[in-house]
């Protein structure tokens, strides 16, 4: 339940590719919750959290994009100085290697939500919950 479906889309570094993705999602009335782009000189990977991940994946594939679903974790923390630092300390204590992370935009006042990608996702849930870290379930994330 804490495994969040993230969509990764391969994009060439060419004009209009990101716009093509967002246009397809708009047509299908899919809402983007969070997004980040990792890029190199020739290509990039667009990572998305959306309200209907399976449908989004199917529509993008149909349009010819290379799309993969990856499991990530959504962590809720206080919107105050030091909370991210504290959380990273917890990860370190647990011996968990962070591959990448990015933040959700526009959530409830007072709290922040970060998406993290780690190895061995299902093991990490347990470790984090034990340490008292607040995680969001799939339903909560898609309905945000």
């Amino acid at each position: 339940m804490y495994g969040i479906k993230q969509i990764s889309v391969f994009l060439e570094n060419k004009e209009g590719r990101l716009a093509k993705v967002t246009k397809i999602l708009a047509q299908e009335k899919i809402n983007i919750r969070a997004l980040c782009v990792a890029d190199t000189a020739d290509f990039g990977i667009l990572r998305l959290i959306v309200n209907r991940p399976d449908a989004a994946c199917a529509f993008l594939k149909k349009a010819g994009f290379a799309v993969t679903i990856t499991e990530v974790i959504a962590v809720k923390m206080a919107d105050s100085p030091g909370s991210l630092s504290d959380f990273l300390q917890v990860l370190r204590e647990c011996g968990v290697n962070l591959e990448y992370m990015y933040a959700f935009g526009g959530v409830a006042k007072g709290s922040a939500i970060n998406v993290i990608r780690v190895d061995r996702v299902s093991e990490v849930f347990g470790l984090l919950l034990e340490k008292g870290v607040a995680l969001l379930s799939e339903e909560e994330v898609y309905e945000l």
Binding site: F10, K61, A66
Partner: peptide, 8 residues
């Protein structure tokens, strides 16, 4: 099209 490609 079916390549697992999350990582740069």
């Amino acid at each position: 099209g079916d390549l697992a490609l999350d990582g740069i």
